[in-house]
Design a protein around this nucleic acid. Structure first.
Lengths: 327, 327
DNA sequence: TCAAGAAATGTTATCGATCACATGCGCTAT
DNA sequence: ATAGCGCATGTGATCGATAACATTTCTTGA
């Protein structure tokens, strides 16, 4: 009740001349308390800056109403900009959780072995792979778990992700439709989502009788794609179509092509991924595969809530669509 | 102890044939419990998937060790990609909080009046302005509060943000140094951070005897900057330097200039803001003002922890630096 | 007018972990 | 032999809110 220690319901009750039970009821808008008493207690609470003790309430109610979201990310001062997921994904999760009155506890990187994570009602893992073992452990402990990643592979846990296979198909169709015959895939296939895209991409190319002339590793930056494209060119690989792992990489590839006099899209076609805001701003505007991060987030949240309710949701792939621009 | 109800320390204690106090001590690695008992209890806990009840612990320990981060954002399915802050900012916050053993509760939009927010030890508000009243209320309730925004203005709460005024100065110096005399500011000055940039920008222009020929509203997208630049051109405004509110807007402006035959940087110079990954990937590579989101996040977290410890940290501006590229 | 029931308020036990304090046990020094 | 000490463990009270049950106050109909 002093400045140091927070006020409790008991304190408020004394102030209002009622029992703490009445205070509890009043603050929860119970119909069991008269209008005027409720008003008086609420205004007293506001006036004295009373804040409920969430831990006490949650203990008594045997609930937490909290979902932990673990984001795989390596943030350092030297390399501050590793941006694995757009905030929109978190936004989607948050929106759906908020609707169900759940809070979102975000844990960025670090070991998952954390009371706070274990203490929550469920865990959403952003970034498959890095946490394979952690995921398994969570499963063993009976913590509801949903993972953002590659939903096509079978796992013991629920996976939500965009339909990368279909994305790969769309990219192939786009490039082939533009008359391209010698295609290049730019990305690291150790990444399960990229490997899925390749699995959609390759058969489509084969079916058409065109050729996948190279799968060149590259990470999600323009500089890396610039270098990867340069490597191919120096190796003498001839190609007229590029499927890049994201829009930034697409831009890097285009830059490398232009630097050697190959024009986009007249000589070479390029397809990116994500439909990031920069894709439309780039010149030439980048043709890309859109994945809807926001609805992906919402889906993740819905799945975890289903698990908590004891249902058994299936893994699910989100639709992807081609945004055809200049490249 | 059944599948439905989670196991408690009491249950574990029975299993191990000790009292729950010993279990409590063992799990916390207290030196007051013998090596073999500790091991036995820990392996039992692992085996049975015991998870501590965080609410109970926090209630007893009178702590929460949780900071709420409120992100201003309007995520909808129609407009899913409003990306007000990079994840790096959250990453910085998370890193610093984790080091102090605090958890991060993220609330995206929605009303701030939420037990979970009030229940945490402190609140970090991302996005001034939108929450002026909420901020005031939090202050009245004695909730430690730190806001990301414009640190130059005086507020009753602590503000951390990049040094937008200095950023504006740097941009002006860059444009003037390139010999530009008729400058344009692209951005909505209702936004307090942009207004700060203008406050740094304008005097520098004046001092040099150059001219600020227009301040044109525009939001943080390339399309909006494209339009804004088009408006200026159509109005017949002549200018040779542009300071855009972010890198995406810079790209939009460049596109609009190129569309009317004005070359960048030969005829017009452009400076962006943020040093987003796309700034370097764009052609021509965009000259920009870098703000270090990650260390900004860390600073926010450090300030809130100081407030919680009863110290009185001051508002603080983060250094900005000019990244000189082609434009 | 008064019994009966509804409405408003109070009392007690409880959630699960932890602290302060007690107890038990083995060992050593006198 | 036993007082005295240190280490390992147990007991009871506690944190703040809420459900279940108990009690009081207010209405209303015969």
């Amino acid at each position: 009740m002093t400045d140091r220690n927070r006020m409790t319901m008991q304190d408020l009750a004394r102030l209002a001349g009622v029992s703490k039970m009445t205070v509890s009821r009043a603050l929860r808008d119970s119909s069991l308390v008269s209008e005027d008493v409720r008003k008086r207690i609420k205004s007293l609470a506001r006036e004295h800056g009373y804040r409920i003790n969430v831990a006490a309430r949650d203990l008594r109610l045997q609930r937490r109403k909290t979902i932990a979201v673990v984001v795989e990310m390596s943030p350092t001062d030297e390399r501050p900009m590793s941006e694995p997921y757009p905030l929109a994904l978190l936004g989607g999760i948050a929106q759906e959780l908020a609707a169900a009155d759940y809070a979102m506890l975000v844990k960025v990187s670090g070991k998952i072995t954390d009371d706070e994570v274990y203490g929550s009602d469920g865990v959403i893992l952003l970034g498959q792979g890095a946490h394979e073992d952690a995921a398994e452990q969570l499963g063993r402990m009976g913590v509801p778990l949903v993972v953002w990643g590659s939903p096509t592979r079978a796992h013991q846990y629920v996976v939500v992700g965009s339909d990368n296979r279909h994305g790969g198909q769309l990219a192939a169709q786009q490039l082939l439709g533009a008359g391209r015959r010698r295609l290049v895939f730019l990305g690291d296939t150790d990444h399960s989502e990229l490997s899925d895209r390749l699995e959609g991409f390759r058969p489509e190319v084969d079916r058409d009788g065109a050729e996948l002339v190279a799968v060149e590793p590259c990470d999600f930056t323009s500089a890396s794609a610039f270098e990867a494209t340069g490597r191919l060119l120096r190796r003498g690989v001839e190609f007229d179509g590029v499927f890049a792992c994201n829009d930034l990489a697409a831009a890097g590839a285009i830059n490398a092509l232009n630097a050697t006099g190959r024009r986009v899209p007249s000589a070479v076609s390029v397809v990116g991924y994500d439909d990031a805001p920069m894709a439309a701003a780039y010149v030439p505007a980048i043709t890309t595969i859109r994945q809807n991060w926001h609805s992906g987030g919402r889906l993740l949240a819905r799945k975890i809530l289903q698990l908590i309710r004891g249902e058994t949701p299936a893994s699910e792939a989100l639709p992807t669509s081609l945004i055809s621009r200049s490249t």
